[in-house]
Each structure stands twice: as structure tokens, then as C-alpha cells.
Design a binder for these strands. Structure first.
Length: 167
DNA sequence: GTCACCTTAGAAG
DNA sequence: CTTCTAAGGTGAC
């Protein structure tokens, strides 16, 4: 039995994101899809618990703030229970990177006390279930270059540019 | 077991 | 400068 999840759409000028909520909070955020925009996504919030609706309002507000290059004043509770201990350490470190700042995979690795797990940090970033709000896009390669981004390098570039980071 | 992945410091050519 | 190597964690096959 999996934790029941509620999927709600978020309409932005950058496309339709989909937020997944578990009992604990926001568990996953998907970038706009070209293929299957809605698959189990609620079109109405009628039968959605008020708790979740409240989280969703926070998610929508926070997402739009980041997309606009600003720092959200409020976040919904994040349910990162889906990751391993190592991944949660990485994601937690990512959340400390402020708007407009960047770090390298190596710096994250050192920050969590695993200076040699550099590539593993890359792996954890790629496994990040909540991109944008957990700013995996603020992690660059050590030489200042973009590095990779599973959601598409366009997004990484776009988000950083809007935050005022020059590449 | 093997491989591919959002990496990187260092050594060799 | 370019190329090669070794080292971590994890999920897919």
C-alpha cells in the first residue's frame, strides 16, 4: 500500500506544473509535460482535504515566486520521506542556497561531510522530487559551468537567469 | 553483477 | 590546453 497522493495542477506562464501531496505535505513537483498533461490530476479541488488545499496555495505562491526570480516567503511542508538518508542530506543542503546564489556539487558534498561523494550529489540532485522549490538548479559544476539537469538545461538556465545569476 | 548518471581534482601528454 | 583516471550512491536491467 502506497501513501495516497493527491495531484493538483499549477498553471503558470511557463506551463502547467503538477504537485503531488502525501499525508505529510508536498511530495513531488513535476515540470510541465508535453505528452500527458493530466493523468490522475484533479481538475476540481472539491473533494480535496482543506489541509491539502492550504498546502497547495502555499506551493502555488512559492513556485510563482521562484519562477519570477524571487524568494518565497512561505513554503508548504515538504515530504522528503521518499528519499534515502543521503539524498535527504543533499536536498536539505540545497535548500540553504539562497536566491541568486550558486554552489558546486563539490561544495554540497563537503557541506554534508562526504567530500568525496561528489558524483553522488549529482545523482541526488537528479533524484530531487521537488525541483524549483528545492533549488537543485543552483548547483553548478566546479568550473562555473552549468553541469547537467534532468529537467532540461533550459530550465536551469532560465531559473538562474531570472535570479540574476550570470553564466 | 554491470552500467549510466546533474562531478572533479590531479596527473600525464 | 586536452585527455585520462579514480572515486560515491543509487536505481535500472
Amino acid at each position: 500500500m502506497k501513501a495516497p497522493s493527491v495531484k493538483l495542477p499549477i498553471f503558470t506562464s511557463d506551463g502547467q506544473f503538477v504537485a503531488h501531496y502525501s499525508e505529510k505535505g508536498l511530495a513531488k513537483l513535476n515540470f510541465p509535460r508535453v505528452g500527458t498533461p493530466r493523468c490522475g490530476v484533479r481538475t476540481s479541488q472539491r473533494d480535496v482535504p482543506s489541509k491539502v488545499r492550504r498546502w497547495h496555495r502555499a506551493t502555488v505562491a512559492a513556485l510563482k515566486q521562484v519562477l519570477a526570480g524571487r524568494s518565497p516567503k512561505k513554503f508548504p511542508p515538504l515530504d522528503l520521506s521518499g528519499g534515502t538518508t543521503f539524498q535527504r542530506q543533499v536536498w536539505n543542503a540545497l535548500r540553504k542556497i539562497a536566491r541568486g546564489q550558486t554552489k558546486s556539487y563539490g561544495e554540497i558534498a563537503r557541506a554534508i561531510g562526504r567530500p568525496r561523494a561528489v558524483r553522488a550529489v549529482g545523482g541526488a540532485c537528479g533524484a530531487n522530487p521537488i525541483p524549483v522549490l528545492v533549488p537543485c538548479h543552483r548547483v553548478l559544476a566546479a568550473n562555473g559551468k552549468l553541469g547537467g539537469f534532468s529537467g532540461g538545461l533550459d530550465w536551469k538556465r532560465k531559473l538562474l537567469t531570472r535570479e540574476g545569476v550570470s553564466l
